[in-house]
Design a protein around this nucleic acid. Structure first.
Lengths: 168, 168
DNA sequence: TTAAACTTTCAGTAATTATTGAAAGTTTAT
DNA sequence: ATAAACTTTCAATAATTACTGAAAGTTTAA
């Protein structure tokens, strides 16, 4: 396969995967471009590469920075801003997990905790079923939370070495 | 908190979480209703509970069945179809992971494999960076794939007992 | 200061995704 | 066979989400 074709396919695949996981397709595509770029890129270059507007490029780059996946790079003697992506894929995964945990898991944990005690006839089938499900979820999400913390605190090799041991 | 308020909040939270993860909000809400229902529900009851149309209910219930999270239940002497959700939350998680792996991880693995060999000057900075990223991804996704298989094949206690050991 | 070089914002618009509801399809009982 | 009771489909429409581009804002250099 020719390089340009491979590059286009990579950008498209990364974008599709992102959109399947609730991440703006363009944001994922900008990320893909930066992941495979050997040098920091300007907003102009990103706009040209994806044929998107300045506003769109700006907002998606900013989002990537908020996700801690991309950062600005200053070139001395140049007023333009350049952008680079974190290239260590394990670190990329950690940062995505960290961010989604903060944005999505923590609010859910909070709601579940509120729903653990409800008023009314505790013997009614509806309330019994509801309470049982909330308790299951509370336990499950709590375990997940701990596992994710582990994942975030350990390094790649430590975690995988244990998983591999499990597998054998 | 009163039961009906708690129920409404649970349905809404589940729906929001779903939409953040690329799953149709209504599908997630139908799932939420069934998760906390002590009995199998008909399409009519689900339509009424969420104020949605027959077509919408039908399609989302079908999707949930395709995800293997909900199944039909036949009541002797009744022509209506009734639906129930898998209630074991660990099993729910396993089925979601299994389905997403099949739908999303496997196609990505396939593309990555195709992109591992590309034509052109292997010394160029662009190709070197591209190849390096593809190789990292190949290794990472391969490990993830194995870990997910493990997760799917072991039971909850086995896996978590090892994670807990890790954490201590 | 001034103005050039750049970045950010956001109202309007476009693209995508989800929903409705009525018609078509299917199953069951008689 | 017929019709009642139910489910499924899908074209039209609505709702949501993303994008554009020009104007406003900011920074830097002289």
């Amino acid at each position: 396969m020719e390089f340009n074709e491979a590059k286009a396919q990579f950008i498209q695949t990364w974008g599709k995967l992102g959109s399947e996981w609730g991440i703006n397709r363009t944001m994922a595509q900008v990320h893909a471009i930066l992941l495979i770029s050997p040098k920091a890129m300007s907003a102009e270059e990103i706009m040209a590469e994806l044929s998107i507007s300045r506003g769109n490029a700006n907002m998606n780059i900013r989002d990537l920075i908020n996700w801690n996946l991309v950062h600005k790079e200053l070139v001395p003697g140049d007023r333009k801003e350049y952008f680079t992506a974190e290239k260590d894929i394990w670190e990329v995964a950690r940062r995505i997990i960290k961010e989604r945990k903060k944005r999505e898991m923590e609010p859910v944990l909070k709601v579940i905790n509120q729903l653990k005690t409800i008023e009314g006839d505790q013997q009614s089938a509806e309330i019994k079923e509801f309470t049982s499900m909330i308790n299951q979820l509370d336990s499950f999400v709590g375990k997940m939370d701990k596992s994710v913390n582990l994942l975030l605190n350990e390094n790649e090799n430590k975690l995988f070495s244990i998983l591999f041991k499990l597998m054998s």
